[in-house]
């Protein structure tokens, strides 16, 4: 009897294992022609380009082909939080390649969606090569700085966060007015799980990108992500809302806001007039520091009014 029971156990184990593997890989594959799946994942570890970019990674100097089409609701999927939070979902390029090839899995634990209309979502601008910006660089220093940013973007994609941070420091030294570099710094620090530092740089990016609303929204969206990862859902939701107010199609913000709809405040629709005792827009956040346990959300007003 012993060999038979052993065989049965082995068969059962193998079946479970293969089922687990197929579920995991299918959860992480981007649908053909769909957007980056990672925006639906709860954990930033599975978010950046290295992990979950579509199989056709855009790199050619002539200009990258962006993923065509927009996702329909049926394509929406999310890795389960436990899967996303597991060490195996970290930024390994090899894991990224295999994940990118598997079919999408059904989402779980998604809060009720907010109806944000039929606006087509935009691809994440900071994932795209910076060729167009390079071509339009206003001065040589900006061009040199952006090239280093592009290098850093690829390093982030490849999981080399420390290298990216070093290069971005160099980029800023060459052109301190290049606020785009701060967006990538923020992303790199999110991936290093240093959310406080990420928020510092993303805040700087947002302050300096007033003339580029799309990128400003990108910075705010990543702020939302950083807050979310740091366990501050209210601040995260507010940041996503700010991003959407500027660029309604920002996908990171859309999905993030959807995910956190349960934490939205009922009264934060309009920009309040400043009153005595009320914080002025632009004052430093008075909420708990990132990483601290989420507590009673402070009364903050939304930042910028919508641009359109």
């Amino acid at each position: 009897m012993r060999p038979l029971s052993t065989a049965v156990l082995a068969f059962t184990f193998a079946a479970l294992a293969s089922l687990s593997i197929s579920t995991r890989t299918s959860a992480l594959q981007a649908p053909a022609g769909g957007p980056n799946k990672e925006v639906f994942a709860f954990n930033e570890e599975s978010i950046p380009g290295a992990d979950l970019t579509p199989t056709a990674t855009p790199t050619p100097a002539a200009g990258a082909a962006s993923s065509p089409g927009a996702p329909g609701p049926s394509n929406a999927a999310a890795a389960s939080p436990s899967a996303a939070g597991s060490p195996a979902s970290g930024g390994s390029p090899v894991a990224a390649a295999s994940r990118a090839e598997s079919p999408a899995a059904e989402p779980t634990d998604i809060p009720p969606a907010i109806d944000i209309g039929s606006i087509a979502p935009t691809l994440r601008v900071s994932d795209q090569p910076l060729d167009r910006m390079l071509a339009a660089a206003p001065n040589p220093a900006r061009g040199a700085s952006l090239r280093i940013c592009e290098q850093a973007r690829q390093e982030i994609d490849a999981g080399h966060y420390d290298e990216a941070i070093r290069d971005l420091g160099r980029s800023i030294s060459i052109d301190p007015s290049n606020s785009y570099a701060y967006v990538y710094l923020g992303r790199a620090y999110i991936l290093k799980k240093d959310y406080k530092q990420a928020l510092t740089f993303l805040g700087r990016a947002a302050a300096g990108l007033g003339a580029d609303p799309v990128w400003r929204a990108e910075a705010l969206a990543f702020e939302g992500l950083a807050y979310e990862q740091a366990g501050q859902p209210t601040d995260a939701f507010n940041a996503y809302q700010q991003a959407l107010a500027i660029t309604p199609g920002n996908l990171t913000a859309r999905v993030g806001a959807t995910r956190l709809a349960a934490y939205s405040q009922p009264s934060n629709a309009a920009t309040p007039a400043a009153e005595d005792g009320a914080a002025i827009p632009g004052a430093p956040p008075s909420g708990p520091a990132p990483g601290a346990p989420a507590s009673e959300p402070p009364p903050t007003a939304p930042d910028a009014s919508p641009s359109d």
Binding site: I165, G169, T200, F201, G203, R204, G282, A283, P284
Partner: peptide, 11 residues
Amino acid sequence: EFTAEQVLSPE
């Protein structure tokens, strides 16, 4: 390591 701290608000 390149780090920073927001000591004053940008405003």
